[in-house]
Simulated assay, not measured.
Amino acid sequence: MEPADDEPDAALLAALRAGDLDAAGRLFRRHLEPLRRTAGAWARQPAERDDLVAETFARVFTIVRAGGGPQDELRPYLVVTLRNLVARWSRQRSRVELWATVPEAAAGGADELALHRSNARLVWSAYCTLPGRWRTVLWRTEAEGGTPTEVAPSLGLSPNSVSALAMRAREGLRQAYLQVQVPEAEDPGCREPRRRMGAWIRGALSPRRAAIVAEHVAGCPSCRLVTRGLVEANRELPGSAARLTG
């Protein structure tokens, strides 16, 4: 019997980024069965379940080897990627909500909780990058549920102005949510395009700046991998801002 593998995910992920393929095998063996149980909540046929799991690991390991992906715990990232694949493969939905209910898995809900916490951390990180006025209007309208009429006096604005400000803030939160998922670039040439990727994916850049980012991504395999993940995350975003509490 093989000895227990107690090396943390963070160390194995770092090794994989450095080119150690044995680390990928150890991560695969560690997370295979839990991910198969999670996949079983969506895919009832064993073949479909195994396809989902195999594709999930392949995508995540490709991103990690390119320098992106998780730094510490692999499981939440695997579950998010799996969910993204389910959303793409499904032909019964026209949109997948960012906070959609995850089917109950045989593992007793541990992966659902990890997924929720992972998303919550991303949303909160994105929220903290916003200008103060945007944070205030989002908190008052989204977290506290205030109407524009109720919020207007505290902001010194008319209800219509509060509505307009909240709309801009919600779009800013969507862009920020994508941006906080962009890994830092080691190549200096990638740093400026990556700094604008959240806005670029949302179509918020000027034509000139959008063309610069698009040209760079077209010629940079590493940034194309990052972009692919952001495109999938953007498809999940609901029409309104992501919840600030949960």
Rank of each mutant, 00 (worst) to 15 (best):
L35R: 03
D187G: 00
L98P: 00
A66C: 05
P153H: 07
V226L: 07
G108C: 05
W89C: 02
R95N: 05
A210Q: 07
L52N: 03
V180S: 06
W89P: 00
E104V: 12
L82M: 15
E184K: 02
A24C: 04
A10S: 14
A210M: 06
L98R: 11
T81P: 02
A4N: 00
A126F: 04
D72R: 14
H116Q: 10
A39Y: 10
V151F: 08
R243G: 11
P207Q: 06
R209N: 12
P70A: 06
A15F: 00
R243Y: 12
G198H: 09
A18H: 03
H31T: 05
A185R: 02
R117C: 01
G109E: 09
A233S: 12
V102Q: 12
P153R: 00
W134M: 10
A110I: 01
V123D: 03
R29N: 04
T147N: 03
C128V: 08
D72W: 09
R228I: 00
D22I: 01
A54V: 12
G239A: 04
R29F: 06
A233V: 08
A18V: 01
V231A: 13
D50R: 13
T81W: 01
S118P: 00
R196L: 15
L85K: 15
W200R: 01
L230T: 00
Q179W: 12
L237A: 06
R44E: 15
A199W: 12
L113E: 15
F57N: 14
T245H: 10
R202E: 14
G229S: 14
M167P: 00
L85I: 12
R168E: 11
P70N: 07
I63C: 04
T141R: 06
L165D: 00
I201R: 15
P153M: 01
I63L: 15
R133G: 06
A106P: 02
L122E: 10
A166D: 02
R49F: 10
G145A: 11
A41T: 07
L225W: 13
V96T: 15
S161Q: 14
V217M: 02
R209I: 03
V64Q: 10
L85P: 07
S163G: 15
P34M: 07
F28K: 05
R133M: 07
E97K: 03
P70E: 11
F28Q: 11
D187E: 12
I63G: 10
R36D: 06
D5A: 09
R196C: 04
V217K: 00
W89A: 10
T147V: 04
M197A: 11
P148K: 11
A106T: 11
A47V: 14
R44L: 10
N84M: 14
R30L: 06
